[in-house]
Design a protein around this nucleic acid. Structure first.
Lengths: 224, 224
DNA sequence: TTTGCTTTTGATGATTCCATCAAAAGCGGC
DNA sequence: GCCGCTTTTGATGGAATCATCAAAAGCAAA
């Protein structure tokens, strides 16, 4: 999963990025509204953390522009505790959730996880697909009860697929969401890791759609 | 192109089908409203000719049902000369054009051609794509001025692609619109004819999108 | 630095998809 | 029926895509 952090306070920005990266997210950062707007416009993110008070262009304006252009990426707003009107403005502009400063980073983490999950249409923190269960909170995967030992990239790949159950996910989409810009786009890591996942989970969980990508789908759940 | 004729008068039905087939259309026929509705629902047509007075289910109802289900196929209504109210009802129900009985078959032909063209978003009877021009009225194709000699299937294949400039057209879509139901779906005729067209028109007019199908696109015309 | 684990690279082979060709089949006119 | 043209079939080879493996590179903890 790939996340954009737009926050002008350098310490706070860095702190957020570090924690998110530790959790396995790919993170881009911006320090003013214009830069943030540009990145959000051009790169595909799974969630965006957006401060309200920003130089050059304020957070509300950035968000409004995105929403007017039809961007649906979930946005978590950062507001000051006492500026109650900011929250209202944020929600009106299309924010999906907000956190008041100062906050515990864990709270931001939890909310980001939740935003990404909900954007993919999953209510609980556990995503279930047949015998397969992935818990986004604990980052644990079980298959008919027994827990799998997955490496970081294996988990993140499976995590992305599980967030898009029933959809065909292209290799480029995977690369874009699991790596940052300057990753070699015609490497075959994705194939390799799909192979490893199949070896650990059984061959018939991830199907490959030739020329299109990979798909994981619920055996019981009928349509898309 | 594939057309459905729904008309209970057997002579008239047959007459229409014969002329349309002579023009290279693939034609299915139905003699009552229910049969017509079913076919229109299950097979992909480029245009439908629908009589208003039909047994079992009248034409207006058939059309209303299709439109309610979101079907957009252009429909040409056949009405009696003096039943003026029928025409209004037809237009209201979502008919795209109508012809009053008795009519000259040529008029029906012209209107069907026009309906199919307009449904694909082309105003004039001539479809132009770079140096390539296809005249739907005279069934003639020129490339930078010089006329091509095309066989019937070659023309119909190119015709279908030209009606969908900029879109990727799958092999199955082509088979469905150039042949009737019981054509062997995994034959390679489409490939063969694409090959022949390329030989006559130059290799770079029809591009192949691997795993998806073929596309013909305007070199100047920017987007879709 | 060494060790152990994860990730990436590059090579290889299998499979699927597409292009092409020549021969067979179909069809209409004479 | 015979002939010319169009369409279809089947076989073949080439090209793109995907799977798999082993070795190299990267990285972090001891």
């Amino acid at each position: 999963m790939r996340i954009l952090v737009v926050e002008d306070d350098k310490d706070l920005n860095r702190q957020l990025c570090d924690v998110l990266q530790d959790q396995g997210y790919v993170v881009d950062k911006a320090f003013d509204g214009e830069e943030g707007h540009f990145l959000g416009d051009t790169e595909p993110y799974d969630a965006i953390i957006l401060d309200i008070g920003l130089p050059v262009m304020d957070g509300i304006s950035v968000l409004e522009r995105w929403r007017k252009d039809g961007k649906k990426t979930p946005v978590l707003m950062l507001t000051a505790r006492d500026r109650w009107s900011d929250k209202v403005a944020g929600i009106d502009a299309g924010a999906d959730d907000y956190v008041t400063k100062p906050f515990h980073v864990e709270e931001v983490l939890a909310r980001v996880r939740s935003l990404i999950r909900r954007a993919a249409g999953h209510a609980s923190s556990e995503i279930i697909c047949g015998d397969l269960r992935l818990d986004t909170k604990s980052s644990k995967v079980t298959i008919s009860g027994t827990q799998l030992k997955l490496t970081s990239l294996e988990f993140r790949l499976l995590d992305y697929l599980m967030h898009h159950i029933g959809e065909v996910v292209s290799r480029t989409e995977l690369v874009e969401h699991l790596y940052d810009q300057d990753f070699d786009r015609d490497s075959n890591t994705i194939e390799v890791f799909v192979g490893r996942l199949r070896k650990k989970m059984g061959n018939d969980m991830i199907e490959t759609i030739r020329g299109m990508g990979y798909r994981i789908s619920d055996p019981n759940g009928g349509a898309a």
